[in-house]
Write a protein that binds this DNA or RNA. Sequence first.
DNA 1: GGCTATTAGTTTGTACACAAAGTAAGTTAC
DNA 2: GTAACTTACTTTGTGTACAAACTAATAGCC
Lengths: 150, 150
Amino acid sequence: MEPVTEATDLLALDRQVCFALSIASRSVIGLYRPLLQPFGLTHPQYLVMLALWQQEPLSVKELGELLQLDPGTLSPLLKRLEALGYVHRERNSKDERALAVTLTPAGRQLRAEAEKIPPAIVARLGMDLDELQDLHAALMRLIASARRDA
Amino acid sequence: MEPVTEATDLLALDRQVCFALSIASRSVIGLYRPLLQPFGLTHPQYLVMLALWQQEPLSVKELGELLQLDPGTLSPLLKRLEALGYVHRERNSKDERALAVTLTPAGRQLRAEAEKIPPAIVARLGMDLDELQDLHAALMRLIASARRDA
DNA sequence: GGCTATTAGTTTGTACACAAAGTAAGTTAC
DNA sequence: GTAACTTACTTTGTGTACAAACTAATAGCC
């Protein structure tokens, strides 16, 4: 019988993709923190702003599909974005169940400032752009695989 | 001036690596949930168990370095693992500041059951093993890049 | 029309994640 | 030997994440 080494151990910490994923996610989000802090935004809030800069208005349901987030997560998050003055929340007049989340002028203005963030992150990472794009594509395939049976 | 399209927009949601990373991380952790539930474990708790199955005892500081987690996160997490009966916490007699976290017999026994988890996840993902290994390597390079200047 | 089922959001409870302040044990400098 | 500093962990406060229960509005069905 083979000895259990780091190379053969199924449970070796540094062979787990889930371990690499969660640390990578937290590490990269950590790079955003100082860049988002001047705007009072957290990273999930920044993702909501990205979604709204692309399309407006969006309902909680639509945001949840875009960001793969629970309504129970988005509901208080959107209230904080409203308190910050970046978004406006009102009921859809066509369907009073749905919320229409829109940008305020301040939220729209923020976009110009935010344009500086992605290049700053890429610069800080100091990684090859090709490698980042490959990684992005691999992550999208992983997401598709993970959500297929879930 | 070029029109801003999805391909040229720096802020397009689906071009952000951070967006792919956070969704991939949450999606994969979601796959673990039903497999860990029978043991009463969450995914971060599972990672702590992986670390302890490799080496014992570990201090909060050592666990924090391995898992890149704050002591403020680990402290209550370890108490829950102790309440579950999987680990034991006691002060290091050589240095009463440090905690010596060790496995209980139940925690040690859990390892055999846990061996089934990684293959089950890989099967559920239904992805090429080579591609998963490439992704793992790319994530480790990303982690190294992200932590270099942080 | 009115009953039932569905849908969209909100609320509650538990568990991370992390910053910041607090506590106790150990180390250093003198 | 003790004051000052450092280290290891705990606690507190804010903000996700997500399950589960709840509320209100709409759609379907008879």
